[in-house]
């Protein structure tokens, strides 16, 4: 049991936690945070597992760097969409509003 293997196992736990949050938490911002926790879990597995055997492996480190940039892009886009969605509907969840609740009703 090395420290790297511990990182990878922690990554497994984070992935499960994030998945729970993404599936069960209704607030969009919490869903997004849960996605980022899942992402961190994946990155920990990706770096920790090869590092456990051969020491520092630059390839997964580079992959994780790419993965982080992609995750940041997705997160930022999601936040912008959420702000616009909140501005237009006043809602922070993905629930369908019933017709009378909809702003302005049927237009």
């Amino acid at each position: 049991m090395t420290a790297s293997l511990l990182y990878a196992l922690a990554g497994a736990v984070l992935f499960g936690m994030g998945l729970y949050g993404l599936l069960r938490l209704p607030h969009l911002l919490r869903k997004l945070l849960a996605f980022n926790i899942m992402g961190s879990g994946v990155f920990l597995v990706m770096v920790g597992l090869p590092q456990h055997r051969g020491g520092a492996d630059p390839i997964p480190q580079a992959l994780v760097l790419t993965g982080i940039v992609v995750a940041i892009a997705a997160t930022a886009l999601a936040v912008v969409l959420m702000r616009r969605y909140y501005h237009l509907s006043g809602m922070t969840t993905l629930e369908e509003p019933s017709p009378e609740q909809r702003p302005g009703g049927r237009r």
């Binding site: 998945l19 993404l22 969009l28 869903k31 997004l32 996605f35 899942m38 997705a74 886009l77 999601a78 969409l81 959420m82 616009r84 969605y85 237009l88 509907s89 809602m91 993905l94 369908e96 702003p103």
Partner: peptide, 17 residues
């Protein structure tokens, strides 16, 4: 509008997962 944004947020979260 709101409905399209809700659909695209749903789509985004599913795609990211």
């Amino acid at each position: 509008k709101a409905a399209a944004l809700r659909a695209s947020l749903r789509y985004l979260l599913a795609a990211l997962l």
